[in-house]
């Protein structure tokens, strides 16, 4: 036999401490220095990256004396942007794009809601939604533009058609997935208080699935914005008053490269504002406040 006493831990005396003194470790809570606080600010960090990029851009164009027709200086671009803004032309273009976008986005959301309700309430609806989504999600909406132009002509209706297509599937799919993921416990809680039908969906399912719904709205928006600009580029040439895509197209034809850059810049700014101001604020006020997302 092996002597088990050799594997035993040593037996030590017990002890009980009387009153505990105040813990006096050096740093229990030390305020961060100003530099640390500034470095922790997300906005400051990202802004410094942007400033660095601008400096690189300007240095590249000035030092290497790049042909402005190919790649205008940052300052030229800003001048072009400013002049188009002042003349009101760019504002009109932005408005025209956003106006069409909002219509298409809203119509897409309404259809997505109808689809999701159908999918949640019946198995046929659920099968239909998943089949249609897997068919149409990989299809770039812009590929439908020629057909849309054939069916609806060269008006905003064609644009709205492709916008609906780009919004509908992403939003419907995400919302449906979100509804399916609502826990049984929450469902039972809702039913415990006698909630049924529309009130059950509005008071339990939608808020519980809101992180997914919001993700769907964001993806749908990004798809729609890109699709819209691309669509405007395609038949902007045939239309008198176009949006931002048409602005770019027009200025490229006039070899106003700085204005093309200004147009691209505007597209980016609108995208960033919607993403980081509108959606970010919705996130902060909802899913983040509720602890459903970090």
């Amino acid at each position: 036999m092996v002597d088990r006493t050799l594997d035993m831990p040593p037996i030590r005396p017990e002890f009980i401490r009387g009153r505990l003194g105040k813990a006096e470790a050096g740093d229990v809570a030390r305020p961060l220095t100003v530099v640390e606080k500034v470095a922790n600010n997300n906005g400051v960090r990202k802004l410094s990256i942007l400033i660095a990029l601008v400096i690189v851009w300007q240095l590249y164009t000035v030092v290497l004396d790049v042909e402005p027709l190919m790649f205008p200086q940052f300052t030229d671009t800003m001048v072009a942007l400013w002049s188009s803004l002042i003349s009101g032309k760019l504002v009109l273009r932005i408005w025209s794009s956003v106006y069409v976008l909002v219509q298409g986005y809203a119509a897409g959301l309404v259809l997505a809601t109808v689809f999701t309700v159908f999918a949640v309430s019946t198995r046929l609806g659920s099968d239909l939604l998943s089949t249609l989504t897997s068919m149409f999600n990989p299809l770039p909406a812009i590929a439908l533009l020629p057909l849309a132009m054939l069916w609806f002509g060269l008006g905003n209706l064609s644009l709205i058609f492709v916008l609906i297509h780009s919004v509908l599937w992403a939003v419907a799919l995400n919302t449906h997935t979100g509804f399916m993921a609502v826990s049984d416990t929450l469902r039972m809680v809702g039913r415990n208080y006698g909630l049924t039908g529309v009130r059950y969906v509005a008071l339990i399912l939608i808020p519980a699935a809101f992180p997914s719904i919001l993700a769907g709205l964001k993806i749908g928006w990004a798809f729609a914005w890109r699709t819209l600009i691309a669509a405007e580029l395609v038949f902007g040439a045939n239309q008198g008053s176009g949006g931002l895509g048409w602005f770019i197209f027009e200025n490229k034809n006039n070899l106003e490269t700085a204005h093309v850059f200004a147009g691209l810049f505007t597209i980016i700014v609108v995208g960033v504002v919607v993403e980081n101001v509108i959606f970010r604020n919705i996130e902060i006020r909802t899913v983040q406040k509720w602890g459903m997302q970090r």
């Binding site: 826990s183 416990t185 929450l186 039972m188 809680v189 039913r191 415990n192 208080y193 006698g194 339990i204 808020p207 519980a208 809101f210 909802t286 509720w290 602890g291 459903m292």
Partner: peptide, 19 residues
Amino acid sequence: RPGADRAMVFQEFDQLLPW
């Protein structure tokens, strides 16, 4: 059917509405 005259307390912590 379920009704508020029989209020339920579950084991899971996610029974509270997070919103």
